[in-house]
Every structure is written in C-alpha cells, then in structure tokens.
Amino acid sequence: MSDSNTTSVMTENWVQIGTVNDIPLRGARHVHMGDKTIAIFRNADNKIFALEDKCPHGGCPISNGIVHDNSVTCPIHNWVISLETGEALGADEGQTLAFPVQMNGDKILLSLSLK
C-alpha cells in the first residue's frame, strides 16, 4: 500500500490528497473518508475533479467508469455524469455530490465542504 497516504496535510479546510501523477490520464482514483468514498478524476486536459463515488442512478462506484471530456460514464448502466457538477447528462436525471478541488503546483487539495 505504498502509494496511499494515510495521513494528510491540512491547509485551512483543504486536505492534500496526492499529486496529479497519482491519477492516470483520463482516469480516476478514489479516496476513503469514513464510510464515504470520493472519486477523484483527471481528464485529458489534466483538470482534476472530485465527486462522491456513487452513481446517482444505482449507487455504483463511478470511479470505475470511462472518463471523456468533462464527464464520466458509469460502467453499470452507462449514465453520463458531469465531472463539474455531478449532474446526470442527457435524458437521465439525478445528481451526485461534487466537492471543490484546488491545485497547488501538482498537488491536489480537496475541500470537504460541498460545492
């Protein structure tokens, strides 16, 4: 478990969770926080997003989906979810929690207050 940081540095209410390179390009990782899991995404433009790792449709972990543009497609029923807002796109309706993210160089800071 060498690449998972069990303690994190606090910067006001921002928590540092790792660096950009910890996440594959157009991919995702996840962060555990108590019984909540937060999915961290990196899109093709190296932008980082954080959403609760729960599809608004059936609750499946969306960090397992395919990332494209500013969205991720849930692997279970192909709902497309906006990485920016957590909202389901297209004909589907629903929203998952979105968390603010800040960059400090290549370090990723996550805020645990909701967007």
Binding site: S4, S8, D22, I23, V31, H32, M33, T37
Partner: peptide
C-alpha cells in the same frame, strides 16, 4: 493504482 485508494482521510481531518 487501480486497486488502492489514493488516500484515506482521518475523520477528524
């Protein structure tokens, strides 16, 4: 990286 969490946050934090 596919199998491990990126970080585990303490609840206090």
């Amino acid at each position: 990286h596919e199998f491990n969490p990126m970080a585990v946050l303490e609840l206090e934090a």
